[in-house]
Nucleic acid binder design. Structure first.
Length: 200
DNA sequence: CTGCCGATATACT
DNA sequence: GTATATCGGCAGC
């Protein structure tokens, strides 16, 4: 395995600054790894779309804590989504990981994502959405709070030397009713694996 | 390809 | 009681 995990201070900036820098980094989970190709930033009191908008709660406390940890939440009664906590301790922020391009562990990812009797799916469909990514890589409640900047962490982010895109595509965020106009989604331009709904 | 709809648990009003 | 940072299936182009 080449490259190394993110430097410890990488996430110690507002999520809106960290988000585009996470593009092309490599996310590792228990089941495999993939290159991050789509992200969204969520802030605190200025962001009506953020879980942390109304202040810290037991669920969102981690978004107010020190940066570099994984915020995993359960939604719609069946899906997990993963974020990297950003900003200095005491400030609320996180980057939602929306899509990765599968790199390693593709067989495990496919079996995680394929239900019995279903046809096999294309590689590009394994992790092209925030909940798909978690299911494919095996990220769930057990990974809540892990340090993504630690080389020994079961869920971590690695820099393998591929730079973020010079001009990432920036759009409004997806799936929100509150805060829908903030342009805090970024993805690798013209990548076939960005999540469905919009390409921007 | 597009768009609608139901599933299903939790957080919060 | 209501909304939800989603997804897969299915209908209709």
């Amino acid at each position: 395995m080449t490259g190394k995990v993110l430097p410890r201070g990488f996430c110690d900036r507002p999520a809106t600054g960290v988000a585009p820098e996470l593009l092309n980094k490599v996310l590792h989970g228990p089941a495999g790894s993939g290159r991050i190709i789509e992200v969204e930033a969520y802030m605190g009191q200025d962001d009506p779309g953020s879980h942390g908008y109304r202040g810290p709660t037991p669920r969102t406390e981690i978004m107010y804590g020190p940066p570099g940890y994984l915020y995993v939440y359960f939604t719609y009664g069946m899906h997990w989504c993963a974020n990297v906590v950003c900003g200095p301790e005491g400030e609320c922020g996180a980057v939602l990981l929306r899509a990765v391009e599968p790199l390693t562990g593709i067989d495990a990812m496919r079996s995680n994502r394929t239900k019995p009797l279903a046809k096999p799916m294309r590689d590009r469909d394994l992790a092209n959405g925030p909940a798909k990514l978690c299911q494919a890589l095996g990220i769930g409640e057990a990974q809540l709070g892990l340090d993504v900047t630690s080389a020994s962490s079961e869920a971590r982010v690695r820099d393998d030397g591929v730079s973020p895109p010079n001009s990432p595509t920036q759009t409004k965020r997806i799936g929100l009713s509150q805060g829908r106009d903030l342009p805090w989604r970024w993805h690798v331009p013209d990548h076939p694996g960005v999540s469905r709904s919009r390409v921007g």
